[in-house]
Amino acid sequence: MSATDDSPGGSSALDATPSAYQEVQRSPEFASLRRRWRGFIFTMSAIFLGWFLVYVLLSDFAHGLVDIRIGGTNFTVGLLLGLLQFVSTFTIATIYVRFANKNLDDDAEALKRRVEEKL
């Protein structure tokens, strides 16, 4: 937190020499990392939010469906869908952690070293 003055800190946009951060930000390697990262997290967010919303709307407005008993037991379709929300949450969390460990961390680390060499 270096910017302690009341104005947006740092140099103006017209600086002749870009900062280490700007150099890295403009590099194709960073663009590739950002594209892969954001592609993954935005897609996953859309999936889990959409699926959660569908579940809430079904539980709210489709009682005829969620109240159906499954195969002579006391389990309902709603309960099953609810438990599937647990499963999908655990699954998405696991997939993301694996994806990030495998496909993001090394590239992020390399870019970090590039910035810190120039700072």
Binding site: Y21, V24, L33, E109, K112
Partner: peptide, 11 residues
């Protein structure tokens, strides 16, 4: 730029 690079790399 600093925020974006820092947020994704930890630099």
């Amino acid at each position: 730029s600093e925020m974006e690079v820092r947020s994704m790399t930890g630099a």
